[in-house]
Design a protein around this nucleic acid. Structure first.
Lengths: 225, 225, 225, 225
DNA sequence: GATGAATGAGGCTTCATTCAT
DNA sequence: TATGAATGAAGCCTCATTCAT
């Protein structure tokens, strides 16, 4: 479950030719924006370079001035996506120190779902591409690992504080509970399961806390013992 | 999260021409088997009809004697897959009546992972195709709903017995915990996260039980107080 | 404008395998009938052997028991067509000896249009096929020649009686006036020019008679001198 | 027999992509020319896109840069054909005012035959295609209507001058006599009936004039009474 | 006779990529 | 830089015809 590298997301796109002039910069941006629109609308496979060029209002050949393949623009779009994703997910107001554990977890889950919601279409496309493009699968995995590592560390801390059972393997648990949150977001936003946002956040957090044996909610809310 | 219909999986493939003679039957089966091998090896998009025919050792045109498109064979392969999946998942030895709740859940999780393992490559491909083919997305959803419904019913039962907190919504919980199991299987088998089978089953079950507030393991196993 | 051979239509189809048993006879007839229905409905090019077999409710391979190609069934259908055409065109009640010339011409024209009407769809298809199939073009030409020869002989007779100007070449005139009648029938029946049957017959006959300098209608009908 | 619209031939081809550069212009023209050569040589059905590209010495895919289908190039070829046809048919030296009626008709017939002769092969192919392509059938019909309308108007004029019998319906007559000229041209040029040009023009004109009761030739040429 | 399976040549179309201007 | 033309590999699909049973 480990992968080397410490950055959140690998610099990833290095080859793509960068424009020199302002005009070039504009053209390039138009291409990336056009690509994202089309990927979102039609998916990766159904989008072709001719379409992207046309959508960006440049000639077919111009595309190759900035990118060498569809994969390359896609990587750039994804790069933006992940950055945006993490930015949104972190934008939750700085956790006040006094917040209970379950409140912090809830805050995190809410952030994740919200970020997912904001980037739903592209997340779906990334999901799709990751199933057949190893390089993007890796990107996807790295983005994921970021969350898993964070959670695993937290669990270890909770175990040290005696809040979480030592029988629980922090990495397995982080991965599995992360899967629960991530996949539930996907089902909700992309596949269209009929969650209601508030309930979803609450239920996810309840299950998350329960799974680790953490108390959810104020007082002795969880189980009448 | 509901879908109408009561069957496990819709009859799904109806049109594909059935052979009349034994020879035809053999040929058709060879095509389906060849298709599955190639889908597993190369994915859906990269597999083409020419390859399938060659792999089945029949001429190009013969494919069209039995199927009208790649989608059609794929549907057939998936149909087999889901049937197989459900068969394996149920093959866990009939639960002895005396088994504890957590044992039954563990048994179910083990079955799921095992079925996933046995059909790993095709599950991945189905996942892939479901991202861009609505008809298969529906199949995927129906297969999933089968598990969710089962779990939700169980949770309701447990709530009635006072084993599970009434604050937990059975359908949300079934969906979310199902996502956890399903997605973890995927990550393990397809993406290659480094789970060890026994631990994975154990950890999944621990989390599952904990999330619902059910006791895991014999005696006071769960939290060293 | 001459072609060798004296028969109205060449025996044309000789090769086609004739059935021996009554069952075979039935099958063969079913194929020819099916072929005609499909040719009429969809034209020659769009009709294929699979369709014909299916329409005749026999297996694909059975077609080849009786015919070696689409052209061959088509030839048979056309053979029937031309026979039918000539039968209808002659069915006009035997001209009573006392009839005026223009009446006989009118009768002939009416017969032609009626025959055309009865076989419209197939005539159109034959027309179509004759444009790219030399063998059928020949058949078409022979059927046509029959009428031209008849007319040319009649014109010669009329010239000998002093009814028609000697400057008129009987063969050219027969061919050209035949073209007028034939093509007008085609335009009316197949292309859909909006003729009214009675007027068409009358006008055709007027023009036909006028062209040859024959009197049309009773008394001094034609031009007030 | 009427069709609305006043233009000679509908604009007909609108979609086909036009080249921007001179090089593109050259290539496109080469494709159209190649297409016409092959249509003339082999007919519509037997000509395929691969052949056209090869004949134009461009790659297969280049064809699709300018046309989306065989029908599309064909439409363009036909468009040229009809324009050329009408140009030639009108190129007869401006009728001198003093010419007799029959001379003018003869001149018109000669023009028609000559135009037919110059475009014989393509006229045959158009005839062929019109039998199974409704859009081209319409084009064919419109081109035809142009002549019919012209003739009908002339006949009306002659009737007003008392030159033509009022019993003759101008539209029927124009259509039918037009059919005679048109179809005779076809038989001569395409099917190969053995006309001699001069005689054909003369005989056609004789019949045409006679049919309408107009005098043919100088003095009392027509019928020795 | 009849069947239905198998064949493979023949055509169509798309699209990523290169290139001269 | 930008353009648009040209390329050709890669896939798709149809259907006349043959053949073993």
């Amino acid at each position: 479950m480990r992968e080397s590298g410490n950055e959140i997301v690998e610099p990833f796109v290095m080859a793509a030719k960068r424009p020199v002039t302002a005009r070039g910069e504009r053209t390039r941006r138009a291409l990336v924006a056009a690509a994202r629109r089309l990927f979102e609308a039609n998916g990766y496979v159904a989008t072709n370079i001719g379409d992207i060029s046309a959508e960006a209002l440049v000639s077919h050949g111009t595309f190759y001035t900035y990118f060498t393949s569809k994969e390359e623009v896609f990587a750039e779009v994804v790069s933006d996506l992940i950055a945006d994703f993490q930015r949104i997910a972190h934008d939750e107001p700085a956790v006040d120190r006094g917040a209970a554990l379950w409140e912090r977890i809830e805050r995190s889950n809410r952030g994740y779902l919200r970020a997912y919601e904001a980037n739903a279409r592209m997340m779906a496309v990334l999901e799709q591409v990751a199933t057949f493009n190893p390089r993007l699968a890796k990107t996807r995995r790295q983005a994921r690992r970021y969350w898993v590592d964070r959670s695993a560390k937290a669990i270890v801390g909770w175990q040290q504080q005696g809040l979480v059972d030592r029988h629980i393997d922090p990495v397995y648990a982080a991965s599995m509970l992360g899967s629960m949150v991530d996949r539930s977001s996907y089902l909700w936003v992309v596949v269209g399961e009929h969650y209601e946002f508030g309930s979803a956040v609450e239920q996810l957090t309840r299950l998350y806390c329960g799974a680790l044996g953490l108390q959810y909610g104020r007082a002795s809310a969880q189980r009448a013992s």
